[in-house]
Design a protein around this nucleic acid. Structure first.
Lengths: 218, 218
DNA sequence: GTCTATAAATTGATAGAC
DNA sequence: GTCTATCAATTTATAGAC
């Protein structure tokens, strides 16, 4: 085996183990909280000896930081569906679709994010003050333009954004409560679609979002 | 001093200390999570030696249970504003007012509740399956009657309830994020009023809530 | 009822053989 | 890179003097 092949194998092993550890960590941090999570629990769930976790991630906090950063990336990617939309029906509609899909596919990540913010964002405060603030300001500007163009009612864009975050993330963060009230069963595909449609309908109608009528455009 | 007076004093001391401990515990559990909270931290914040906590509450879990139960009581009390309302404008409007006021006045309690549910409700699962489920079913019936009476659009009552919980509790649970995006300052009285009005307006308009017109009643 | 001292168990992290 | 054994610090809970 050549040196290159050996190195490639080593890199692959590292990547695979890091993935195993990060997936296990995301679940354990979500279910037990940062303080309740133990390296032993994460190691067991990843199927690795505890010492190996410390080989890949020096400290518990570094592992946690990596988990939170991954979630933020997913979150930011969904935010793109907001951009380049001609009006609120398309932009906000697509954003709700994307956020609901994330709540469905990444419930653990959403919970870790919620927990981090609830505890005062000790690890990702810099993200809140830079990336998130910039994104928020940009979207507030976009919503204000839609209002100015008469495409929706004049509602406070900031609080509208909070409503979008709250309603969509609720299905992940409070998923256990929703499941209990659903007779102990997780929402099926139809129920997820129904939830998404209800949220979209109430919010879009609530802000008086109007379709763009090309025939009426000047 | 008579025996009665002595006993009364003792009861008063107990009540006062329990209050001190519970307030400190609510704050520490909210900010550090169950696993991150330590009896030492709670004792320091309450201004009592750690051993005294164990005198009043045998275990950390018993103290936590008491904190969560207190929040649930406050939560249930606010739910009453939903009842005996003639229509959705009054009922849902008053409910949003009450829930927003709780988010403002009991942010720690809201966070402890959110954290408990996010971690699978290990301590209050029985509340979810009994009291909360009954309350939810009752309110779904009330909303359905409003729909049948033509007082609002036919939206899924269950998802409407989730939207009400999500939007109002978001201002407590994600208060730190909102504060950061508000330039690092907590919302002032005017901003809280603005948030409440925006939430009410979007939801009430979103469900097509109509005022009861007595002159049109049969 | 209050408080100091301490027991018993757990946890994050590391040493060192393989 | 992997894994066993172990250290050092922390934490819940209690014993026992006052």
């Amino acid at each position: 085996m050549s040196g290159n092949q050996r190195q490639s194998k080593r890199i692959q092993t590292r990547r695979e183990n890091e993935r195993l550890i990060l997936e296990a960590a995301e679940k354990v941090f979500a279910e037990a909280g940062y303080g309740g999570a133990t390296m032993q629990l994460i190691a067991d769930m990843a199927g690795l000896p505890k010492a190996n976790l410390h080989y890949y991630f020096a400290t518990k906090e570094e592992l946690y930081r990596t988990v939170v950063a991954r979630i933020f990336e997913i979150w930011l990617h969904a935010a793109e569906s907001f951009d380049n939309a001609p009006g609120p029906v398309e932009g906000i509609g697509a954003y709700i679709d994307a956020k609901m899909e994330i709540s469905r596919r990444h419930p653990f990540g959403s919970k870790v994010w919620a927990s981090e913010v609830m505890h005062g964002a000790p690890v990702i405060q810099d993200y809140l003050e830079t990336t998130l603030r910039e994104w928020t300001d940009g979207r507030i500007g976009a919503i204000q333009r839609w209002i100015d163009d008469g495409l929706m009612d004049p509602v406070d864009p900031r609080h509208l954004l909070y409503m979008l975050w709250a309603t969509t993330q609720h299905y992940a963060d409070f998923g256990h409560q929703i499941e209990t009230l659903n007779g102990g069963a997780a929402l099926d595909a139809g129920q997820w679609a129904g939830a998404t449609e209800t949220v979209k309908r109430i919010i879009l109608r609530g802000i008086g979002a109007r379709e763009i009528r090309p025939d009426l455009a000047k």
